[in-house]
């Protein structure tokens, strides 16, 4: 058929649909919530819920195995960025201990068409990504912390998302299973 329909993979949607849907949701949350920090927290939570389910999709589509070390994990998340957001961040700024690293995004589809008004300068608009990373890794027994270091919405050159390894979670078998 026409090229227009080929251009669109059925497993893809236009990024503006996502950007604007997310923007509408954040705007609504800001209206509903008492203060900005609450919204940031809720956004992280929302991302967490998505991450918990997204990891399954990732494992099923890539057939990827167990990660050998945190470097490996960082590479996998890097490819997940490409797969789900269509952008490839750089992995950088490893801590000397090797338990902390950053993803550096020079473009971020979530913040296309977005501008933060002055009274929302401390809103962590991209916190949803931190939540997704935390949720997804928790499902593969990695407890991590994730936060935003630099934000293009606040005038920084790049968006930098920091990930810190906390501990490995022990397999907790549901009761009644061996």
């Amino acid at each position: 058929m026409s090229r227009a329909s080929n251009r669109f993979d059925t497993k893809k949607v236009n990024s503006e649909l996502v950007t604007l849907t997310y923007g509408a949701l954040v705007a609504q949350m800001v209206k509903d919530a008492e203060n900005t920090d609450d919204v940031s927290k809720q956004l992280e939570r929302l991302g967490y819920n998505m991450g918990v389910r997204l990891i399954e999709d990732f494992l099923a589509k890539t057939g990827t195995g167990r990660c050998m070390d945190l470097k490996d994990t960082a590479d996998k998340i890097q490819s997940a960025f490409k797969m789900y957001l269509g952008v490839q961040p750089n992995v950088a700024n490893w801590s000397p201990g090797g338990d902390e690293f950053s993803f550096i995004l020079d473009t971020n589809p979530l913040t296309d068409l977005v501008e933060l008004p002055d009274d929302l300068k401390n809103l962590k608009y991209c916190n949803i990504i931190c939540g997704v990373i935390r949720g997804a890794l928790e499902m593969v027994q990695l407890d991590v912390q994730s936060w935003i270091v630099q934000d293009q919405l606040k005038g920084d050159q790049n968006t930098e998302i920091r990930v810190k390894f906390i501990r490995r979670l022990e397999d907790a078998m549901p009761a009644g299973e061996d």
Binding site: R7, F8, D9, T10, K11, K12, V13, N14, S15, E16, L17, V18, T21, Y22, L25, Q28, M29, D32, L46, N49, M50, R53, L54, D57, M83, Y84, L85, G86, P109, D112, L113
Partner: peptide, 26 residues
Amino acid sequence: SRGKGEISLSCFALLFSEVVQYCQNK
């Protein structure tokens, strides 16, 4: 932007599910 960027459908589906849940909770 030219608006040709693409994002995975899974991503949108999960986001929209959160949107619906948010509305539902309220």
